[in-house]
Amino acid sequence: MQIVRALLTRLATTLVTLLGAAIIVFVVIRVVPGNPIAMMLPPGATEADIERLKTLYGLDKSIPEQFWIWIVNVVQGDFGTSITLRQPVFDLVIGRLPATLELSLMALLIAVLIGGTAALTATLYRDTKIEGGIDVAGGVALSLPDFLWGLALILVLGVLWPLFHISGRVSPSLGFDFQSNFFLLEALLRFRFDVVFDLLGHMLLPAFALAIPLAAIILQLLKQSLKECMHDDYITLARTKGYSETSIITRDALPNAILPTLTLIGVQFTFLIGGTVIIERLFSYEGLGNMAIDAVINRDLPLIQGIVLVFALLFTLVNLLVDMTYAALNPRLRHA
C-alpha cells in the first residue's frame, strides 16, 4: 500500500515537473525575438507567404491555443515535425538520444571510477603527502569548467599528441553497419572490438571533459565521509578482528560513507547531462545536445520542445533512480 502510494506521488510530481518545463520552454521560445518563418523564407518573400507558412505551422494562433494543440498531440505520441529538418521530432530525438546517453554514462563511469579510487586511496594514506597530492589534483580538476577541460584535452591529446579523434562519433571509413543507435553497446555485443576502439577514440575526450569536475566533487565528498567513518567504533572493532586497513576501508567504511555521495552524484549527473550540450558541440559529437543548439539557432520550435521534454524526462528519471538506490542501500530506510 505504502509503496503504491509512494509511486503514485512520484508519478504525479514527475508529470507536474514535465508539464512545468514544457510550459516554460514553450512560452520562452515564442516570446524571444526571432521567428522560424523568417529563417525559412528567402529574402523578398511576401507578407502573404509569411502568413501562409504561419498558418501551416499553427503559429498564427495564440500561445495558449498553440500549447493546447501541442500537448494534446504529445499525449497521443505526436511530437510534431521539425521545421528545418522536415522529419518527425520523435524520430529525430530518439535517433540522437542514444549518443548522448552513451556519452553521459561513460562520463559518469569515468568520474565514479576516478573519484572513487582517489577518495579510497586518499583515505588509506590519510595525513600523508599522498593525501595532500590527491587533494591538490582535486582542486585543479575543479578549477576549470567542463568545456575548458574539453578545449585543453583537444589541444593536448588531439592536436599536440593526436592520440584521440576530436570530432564526430565514429570514423565513416570504418563502414560498419549499425543496426541501432547505441553504437558502443552494439559494437560490444557484436564483439567488434575494432569498432569499440574507434568509438572510444571519439568518445573518451568529451567524456573525460565532462567527468573531470565531477570526479573531483566525488573525491572531496566521499573522502570526507570516509575519514569521518574511520573514527567510528565498529571500524576499531574490525581492526581487532585482524582485517587490513584496505579491507576495513572498502568493506566497513565505504558502505556507510557512500550515501551522501550517492545523492550528490544524482544531482551532479543531471548537471553533467546539461553539460553535454556544449561538449557535444565542441567535439561535433552527433548527440541530442548538438542538435539542440542547431534547433535553437534555427528557431525550430517543435524540435526544441521535443528535446527539452526528453532532457526533463531524463533528469526526473535520474532522480528517481537515485532515490531507489538510496533506499536499497540504506537498511534504515528499507525497513521503515
Binding site: D232, D233, Y234, T236, A238, T240, G242, Y243, N256
Partner: peptide
C-alpha cells in the same frame, strides 16, 4: 594483526556504535 584476531578479542564499551549499521 592476524595473531591478535585469532587469540584475543574486545568487548567494547558502547554497543550502540560498535556494530556496523549497514
Amino acid at each position: 594483526r592476524q595473531r591478535i584476531g585469532a587469540k584475543a578479542a574486545l568487548i567494547p564499551q558502547d554497543p550502540l556504535t560498535a556494530l556496523n549499521p549497514s
